[in-house]
Design a protein around this nucleic acid. Structure first.
Lengths: 175, 175
DNA sequence: ACCAGATGCTTCGAAGTTGAAGCATATAGA
DNA sequence: TCTATATGCTTCAACTTCGAAGCATCTGGT
């Protein structure tokens, strides 16, 4: 078993022992992704009038090969439920998806991508991929890509396995 | 080792042939960072009443060791200028920064972090670092961290060197 | 069957973000 | 010098996001 609760903080591992290399990796990771996301968003907006979120939703529906519930759609896209409802409303109004009742569960809403939605997705995807290639993969070797994928997969799985939010170390009425 | 960019070298960014490995790396990268950012935000909010943006701004000011102009602050944080003005207003109202005129340029506003701001930053940083360690670095080896840092540094520098936004690959009046 | 709690989605109000427009100052060219 | 353009920041309106509250349905225990 890994680390247990920090008991009164005498352990070095629990404290802020992030070396400069780690801090650097963290900051540059966040910055680079932020830049990438910004550029991608420009592209999607210009070519298909879509936000990144909307693109993600369409991608998820397109690759699912069938209807998904709102909850299934929300998983993997970190969005709040209400935000998803809002975006689904926009996509439906634009004719890219439809929402209907689920036969299994009357509480659920099944979301289906329309032909229009699929067409738009297909029209936007090449440009999207091109931006990714140009900005992200151009300066990387094949080995880099393998490393990156492996590393981030481990990180993601680790985070998904983590106790969600009960781990707040302390409630401190600050500020 | 990996395959070098070979063949007739004239087709950078033109072919949309992202392999499954690259697509996977891209998606998992975006998802993992999204999750990480979300968790970090919870932490900052709970411990210091700060958003991630505000934390970044304080961090930048703290490490700068002196006042920065609004524009300097905006660089590195992808934010829009208006958003920065808004956040600076909040931070100033909270007493964490001050804004004053620049002696060199009457158009500029110099932002300085206050003692209160520095104190809050110092109080919040350990928790922030701890979350990073727990979520990001826990499942990684030292080699992983080195790779990640190197890879993302290259990506960031590549993007920063790229022609910013006039480079729309093609003007396609779509839809 | 019943009731309590869990689950799925939506509505609502508050807060954050953005791009365009606006104002003031700085800089460069004639 | 004078004027056109660029730069630095702010204001404004529209849009997006979030969390809490609300409603309807499902599940499990009795």
């Amino acid at each position: 078993m890994g680390d247990s609760q920090p008991d009164a903080g005498a352990r070095t591992g629990d404290d802020q022992a992030l070396g400069p290399e780690e801090l650097d990796a963290y900051f540059v990771l966040m910055e680079a992704v932020s830049l990438l996301q910004h550029q991608v968003e420009q592209q999607l907006r210009a070519e298909g009038g879509l936000s990144y979120v909307q693109f993600q939703l369409l991608a998820r529906l397109a690759s699912a090969g069938g209807p998904l519930t709102m909850t299934e759609l929300a998983d993997g896209v970190v969005y709040s439920r209400s935000g998803l409802t809002y975006q689904a409303g926009l996509l439906e109004k634009a004719g890219l998806i439809t929402r209907g009742p689920s036969p299994d569960d009357d509480r659920s809403t099944l979301v289906t991508i329309t032909g229009t939605g699929l067409a738009l997705f297909g029209r936007v995807l090449p440009g999207h991929v091109q931006v990714c290639r140009r900005l992200l993969f151009d300066p990387l070797t094949g080995d880099d890509v393998g490393h990156l994928g492996g590393i981030m997969t481990r990180v993601r799985d680790h985070m998904r396995a983590q106790p969600p939010r009960s781990a707040a170390p302390r409630k401190r009425p600050q500020r």
